[in-house]
Simulated assay, not measured.
Amino acid sequence: MKFNAAGLLLCTFLIGCGGTAPFGEDATEDPTEEGGGTDGGIDSEGLPPGTASPSPNNGIFRSEPRSEEDGANGNGYATGISYDGATDTFTVDGLAFDGGNVYQRGNPVSSLNDGAFSVYEADQQFPDSVTNTPVNQLTHRAIYGVSRNIDANGQPETQFAIVRTGAYVGYGFGGFVYQRANDVNMPSSGQAVFNGRSAGLRDFNGRGGLEYTTANVEVAIDFDDFNDDTGGRGDGVRGEFTNRRVFDIDGNDITAAVLARINNQNDASLSSLPDARFRIGPGVLDGNGEAIGTIASNYTNDEGTTQIYEDGNYYAILSGEDPDEIVGVIVIENSAEFDSTVVRETSGFIVHRTP
């Protein structure tokens, strides 16, 4: 299967096709609003960079934290991310050799997961500012996800963006951002289930290259339990990424090749990629609607032994009165496909409570 340019332009989601404000611009709290605090749940020191004093009454913005880990020290360098609906272009600052910081709609891959998410790419060449000689650029791709719900100001209720490069032996430089534009009403009882899709990028620590990923996503929340020992929130959060597919940079479905890599390296006979699931436990959701936890997947090899395939983290924000949608990002790694190479998937997701 190949993706083509038939994906729906994001400007059709935006009032007047005028574009959205830069990530983080509309997600700061109003100093006149009262209330806030985490109300138990996740430790605020574990939150990614972004909104300094989050509150359920306002929007929240988060970005990928920087890292000192070997191979991952390019995390969080992508800044100034914004989308222009009038020109269907994406602006990214902070990354070297990505053209003039303006990313065009991708070709041949312009969208992922049946057009639900849009793909943008940096220029392949950029002119010398004196001689006009073409300078070859590094491979960069950006994925943009936007809520189907638009507020009174013409802004999406939630959105995310991911930028990665396949031009380094390590992971290279990139980043992700995610945000909600407005408030959230956090229930004190009951349960909720949200469904949607994801799209992401796979890069490698140990070799170059980029791959795309897609999945179906379901997130369920128990607002009654767990009971939090601190007197705050202890809500249980369950998430599943299923029907996972992998595509090469030209949009060809290479899921079978990925499965062959896993099977050959690990004496396994998998016929589909393992589902990735949130680890369920207390202390992952706070009163501002932010959730942070761990995510993993596993498989059974030919000897009947269960093995961990991937391990990582999820980051999410709830939005709306019910609440009625969630935006988030997962970062999950595996060392099961290659010798001396770690594979990292960074996928964004938006899920809604109603179909």
Score class of each variant (00 low, 15 high):
Lys2Leu: 09
Lys2Val: 04
Ala5Leu: 11
Leu10Phe: 08
Gly16Val: 05
Gly16Ile: 06
Gly18Phe: 06
Gly19Ser: 01
Asp26Ser: 14
Ala27Ser: 15
Thr28Trp: 06
Asp39Glu: 14
Gly41Ser: 13
Gly41Asp: 07
Ile42Phe: 09
Ser44Gly: 03
Gly50Val: 07
Ser53Ile: 07
Ser53Glu: 14
Ser55Arg: 11
Asn57Tyr: 13
Glu64Val: 01
Glu69Thr: 09
Asn75Trp: 10
Tyr77Met: 12
Tyr77Ser: 09
Thr79Met: 09
Ile81Tyr: 00
Asp84Glu: 06
Thr89Pro: 00
Phe90Ile: 02
Asp93Ile: 05
Leu95Asn: 00
Asn101Ile: 02
Leu112Trp: 06
Ala116Pro: 06
Ala122Gln: 02
Thr131Ile: 15
Asn132Tyr: 10
Thr133Lys: 08
Leu138Ser: 10
Thr139Ser: 09
Gly145Gln: 08
Asn153Met: 10
Glu157Cys: 04
Phe160Pro: 01
Val169Gly: 14
Gly172Pro: 01
Val177Phe: 00
Ala192Tyr: 01
Phe194Tyr: 13
Arg197Glu: 14
Arg202Ala: 09
Asn205Ile: 15
Gly206Met: 10
Arg207Asn: 04
Glu211Asp: 08
Asp235Met: 08
Glu240Lys: 13
Val246Ala: 00
Val246Met: 00
Val246Pro: 00
Asn252Glu: 10
Ile254Ser: 06
Ala256Glu: 15
Leu259Lys: 04
Ala260Leu: 04
Arg261Ile: 01
Gln265Gly: 04
Asp267Pro: 05
Ser269Glu: 14
Ser271Cys: 04
Leu273Glu: 10
Ala276Gly: 04
Ile280Trp: 11
Leu285Cys: 08
Asp286Glu: 08
Ala291Gln: 13
Ile292His: 07
Thr294Arg: 12
Ala296Glu: 13
Ala296Cys: 06
Thr300Gln: 14
Thr300Val: 11
Thr305Ser: 07
Asp311Arg: 14
Asp311Glu: 12
Asp339Phe: 08
Glu345Asp: 14
Thr346His: 06
Ser347Ile: 12
Gly348Met: 05
Val351Ala: 02
Val351Cys: 09
His352Gln: 13
Thr354Pro: 00
